[in-house]
Nucleic acid binder design. Sequence first.
DNA 1: AGTTTCGGCGCC
DNA 2: AAAGGGCGCCGAAACT
Length: 562
Amino acid sequence: MTDRWALAPAEDGGVEVAPLGPDGLPAGPVRREPDLAEAVRGRPEVARWVWRSTAEVYPRLLATGVRVERCYDIEDAETLLLGHAGRYGEPRSAAAALARLRGGPVPPDPPQRSAEPGAQSPLFEPQSAHVPLADLIEVYADQQRRHDATAHPDRMRLLTAAESAGMLVAAEMNRAGLPWSAEVHRGVLHELLGERYAGGGEPRRLAELADEVSAAFGRRVRPDLPADVIKAFAQAGIKVRSTRRWEIESLDHPAVKPLVEYKKLYRIWVAHGWSWLQDWVRDGRFRPEFLAGGTVTGRWVTNGGGGLQIPKVIRRAVVADPGWRLVVADADQMEPRVLAAISRDPGLMEVAGRESDLYQSVSDRAFSGDRDQAKLAVLGAVYGQTSGDGLKNLAALRRRFPLAVAYVDEAARAGEEGRLVRTWLGRTCPPAAGAGEDLEEEAGIPTAEDDSDDRQQWVPGYASTNARARGRFARNFVVQGSAADWALLLLAALRQACAGMAAELVFFQHDEVIVHCPKEETEAVVAAIRQASELAGRLTFGDTPVRFPFTTAVVECYADAK
DNA sequence: AGTTTCGGCGCC
DNA sequence: AAAGGGCGCCGAAACT
């Protein structure tokens, strides 16, 4: 069962396939066959399909009911390998990789396609130029050699394999869709926003709140226009720099309450209201397009519909099919557990070796039981907090967990100095990531904003705010990115564990996964999650005591999971 | 008129 | 109390 085959759809609708040897080179001739799906369906013994792009091939296979166990996505691997070599931004298409290999002119990558509301996953992705299978195999063999030249070849192999697995999962999720009740959604909208008025204007509740805001200011104010609100406050003798909630909330003015309420509901209305429902929900399913590895840290993104930002109140609309359930599984304190695993800090590993609340354990050791302080300190260390209580707490954290704090500090220093920073498996941060566009600041030349007094406290002397931004980015990158490494392995293991069942993975959001399954399968799914977590922890980070417990809920409605 | 950026906020 | 990381999305504002 170690058979690897390479595959490339031909331009005439047929397909080229070829068996591969252990070195990645062809172990037999390239064969032309008339039908892509049949070529795969007829070879169930193949353990891994090597192809240019999962997004090009796999939706077509799924459309005919064909699933594959594993794949290797050449263009995704090219991206990761280029990144590891510090060559971020070079064209990553198979055609470009081939050109680099042969010394020809390197074609630029085609422009990214943007999402269209309600668009089904296209059967043909408008992507890079066609590359014949024999050439594709050459690129693949070269990539195998390039894995060997990385800092940790075994980890790098795991990374490219894991991300390819993630792409299979993403394609399957895109096909399945998230079960969505339009009726429930409409009910929630009506309850929150009131009736819609003809003509597409604001619903009743928003109109009322806008009137209350205007009444409080004594003139007509549009609460959805920040400039208007700032002016209105100024006329009332209150200076605000923005209309962000945390800045507005504490003000002593009668407009504040309806304004904050307006902004909350306005958000629901524009981002998840009736037109969203119209655009993104079809046949009882919400279909955002999941893209595995869509960010530099390796986190997924969704293309369309804000699939990873479903507001809590709207989750009531996520309802299992009749007789089915949603198994909602959420990794507990994922980021500090990942930090324990990558830093190998003995104290933090010991704490992370228990399934109980990690922040509580940290606070018992370093914060005399104050869980909130402990959580702030840990998150501050991971995010690069620069002021407030976080700094004081960071010192306490450093005393108890020196290797953990040193790990992220070193990443931050590397980022500031423009050195490469990698996740545990080898995903590499582009050296300029986290940098803004402000070259004047980079050069240490004060800009107009710099004489605002609150910034200079934490921008000492001529230190570049850009370098600091890179430092914060890199500090977070090693944790968030390694967590994404682990999450890919988790998804891959969970997908395997669910392979024989009717259960389908329908949602994934950084540290949370939803499986939709017949109610008879829920126990098996919960067990599969546990087993997948254990396997993912071991495969990703090797032999550590760190555990990755999940909170799982078996529910009919997503909103009931928390 | 079409495209890009900004402000604000949803999620993790 | 204050505001650190990653995203996507929307309408308005600011551009070409």
